[in-house]
Design a protein around this nucleic acid. Structure first.
Lengths: 89, 89
DNA sequence: TTTTTTTACGACACACGTAACAATG
DNA sequence: CATTGTTACGTGTGTCGTAAAAAAA
């Protein structure tokens, strides 16, 4: 089942163009990033990044996912802010 | 940290007006619902439901959360559909 | 007695960080 | 050799369902 951590992880990899750099961003290690991305790819049923020699590049599905993932996390931030401020939709 | 399962759980409780009924909806048991809602309330820092004698009622924060939670889950459904259809944002 | 939520508990699964590996430049 | 992603493993944390409790109608 889809997890928000997977989404945050994917976004970090997409934006930093690297598993190791994403790991630093999220204060964790490469191996955790690796398994999360692989599990995401298993769920999607297709690779999200092309592994090149020394860098990675998002696939077409990766590009699509990124736009939606950003929106979802923005909505969640908005929700959290609304809850503590007691603001109404 | 916020979890999508918590959100689904909260929505089920809100819509069914009961922990037990939510449990049936989600194919689980009351106790799991109870701990998830309590953890959500701990994160929010305030109760989301008023426990009445034989029923529950959402608090003001609960009402606010519900609107946003529904939107978040809708966005996620949209994202999942877009990924398998390769549709662009 | 039935229906509700809460709490305790044991078993299993998952997530995390460490470490080692392979491959590239 | 430095940097990349992958894999294996031990430990801890979490999740799940069962069972029992307490309260109310």
């Amino acid at each position: 089942m889809l997890d928000l951590k997977d989404l945050r992880c994917f976004i970090a990899v997409y934006e930093t163009r690297g598993f190791g750099r994403a790991a630093k961003t999220l204060n964790t290690v490469q191996s955790n990033i690796s398994v999360r991305i692989r599990r995401l790819e298993d769920e999607v049923g297709a690779p999200l990044f092309d592994r090149l020699h020394r860098s990675i590049r998002p696939t077409a599905k990766g590009e699509v996912l990124y736009r939606y993932a950003v929106k979802v996390l923005q909505d969640i931030s908005e929700m959290e802010a609304a809850i503590i401020e007691q603001r109404v939709a």
